[in-house]
Computed example of a mutant assay.
Amino acid sequence: MKLVVTGGAGFLGARLIGTLLSQGAAPGFPEFSSIVSADLAPCPVTDPRVRSVIGNIADKDFVESIVTPDVVAVYHLAAVVSGQAEADFDLGMAVNLDGTRTLLEACRRLPKPPRFVFASSLAVFGGKLPDLVPDDIAVMPQSSYGAQKAIGELLVNDFSRKGFVDGRVCRLPTIVVRPGKPNAAASSFASGIIREPLAGVESVCPVPAGTRLWISSPATVIANLIHAGSVEGARFEGHRTVNLPGLSVTVAEMLESLERVGGKEARARVGFREDDRVKNIVLSWPGDFDVSRGLSLGFRQDGDFDSVVRSHMGDHGL
């Protein structure tokens, strides 16, 4: 039996694959003996149980070649990120929407409905929202990326209702601190204002200091994605979408943590220069959520942002 992870060469996908291999199947998680990483590049995890296949998830033939009858679960992480999807509408639609449906249709033809974990985003939200946003509020995305993710959520819920897949949609908080270099995501700065200063590099924040963000550490997001694959589908009670628990912090509060944990010199390396393109996208996202349902389902939450900064420093020997 095997798992398929789309986007397996990326930061999140590779870390998910590595964690699944190191800890094995958790209680309730489908038993598997191998993992297929599907991406535009090889998976960096070197393990005989991992097979990297290179291709585009919008390609029907490619998808059908990896979604074979022995697939017990799919983690759909591949996506064109927010800023890039906004700049290139056709690319975002091809990958984020057409690719998701192509993958679901391939799963629909399997002899047994697989667990299907879809990584969604806070970008599905927009417009006037309550202070604490629940799982079941109507979504009103303010970007092409958000619209594509919202449609993907509906597809996973409907394919689950029909019994084609055993789906669960995880709306991921902004992941902080991501290692590596900045990318085209509108939220990329949230890691950059911590990662770069701790590495001795200056960073520019494109949104106001009072901007409130919903964030989670990489380790907690990975643990929650794995948990999503372990939860029995009936526990979602017909609504397969859950806002993953996170921390509600302002940029100013993040920088206060940076100074407490990383020192004044690190904090001094962060400046502000507003970017309307990024700001307009980010300010449409909610900054706090009612996560009582997610916590009742067993999803976990980081303790505080200081611990998130410390974890990053520990992981990278800073």
Rank of each mutant, 00 (worst) to 15 (best):
I215M: 15
V261T: 10
K279I: 01
K279F: 06
S22Q: 14
N96C: 09
S37K: 03
C205P: 05
M1Q: 05
N183G: 00
F159G: 06
V71C: 02
V50L: 00
Q301L: 07
G303C: 06
R310I: 03
N280L: 13
I175E: 04
K128A: 14
L198M: 04
R115K: 15
G192M: 13
P179E: 09
H316T: 14
E31G: 11
F116T: 01
G127P: 00
R178W: 01
A199E: 14
S284G: 11
A223I: 02
S22M: 04
D158R: 14
H227M: 09
T100C: 12
F164Y: 15
S37V: 05
F236M: 05
S257N: 07
V251Y: 00
I151H: 01
I222M: 10
L283P: 00
C43N: 11
I57F: 09
L132E: 00
L318R: 08
V242I: 14
K264R: 13
C43E: 09
D61S: 14
P44M: 10
P27R: 06
R310L: 12
E265A: 14
T250P: 10
A58Q: 06
V282Y: 04
T19G: 02
G167W: 08
S191E: 01
R171E: 08
F164I: 02
D302H: 12
I222S: 06
A228P: 00
Q301R: 15
A25E: 04
R108K: 14
D70S: 10
R195I: 02
L255W: 00
M313F: 07
T220M: 15
L318Y: 15
R171P: 01
L255Y: 00
T250S: 15
V261K: 12
C43Y: 08
V80I: 15
V156L: 06
G99W: 08
T174K: 01
A223E: 12
V80L: 05
T211L: 07
G55K: 06
A123G: 03
S144C: 12
A185Q: 09
G163A: 09
S296V: 05
G246M: 07
L247T: 03
C205Y: 03
V221G: 01
D135P: 04
S191G: 10
R49W: 03
G83S: 04
D304A: 11
L104W: 04
G13Q: 02
G92T: 12
E232Y: 01
G180N: 04
P130N: 05
Q301W: 01
R269H: 06
A73D: 07
K128F: 03
P245T: 10
N224Q: 07
R260Q: 02
G167A: 12
I226H: 06
S144Q: 07
S230R: 04
V309M: 13
L110N: 02
E259V: 13
A85Q: 09
V261Y: 05
P113E: 01
S191P: 00
D39R: 04
G152Q: 02
N56E: 12
R277F: 15
V176Q: 08
V63H: 06
N280K: 14
E196Y: 12
S217I: 04
T19E: 15
Y75W: 13
G13W: 01
A185H: 03
Q148W: 01
A85Y: 08
R267L: 09
G55H: 08
V117L: 15
A85G: 08
P44W: 08
C170L: 13
A78I: 06
V270T: 06
E256N: 06
F189S: 11
A73G: 15
D70L: 05
L97K: 07
V63Q: 05
E256S: 11
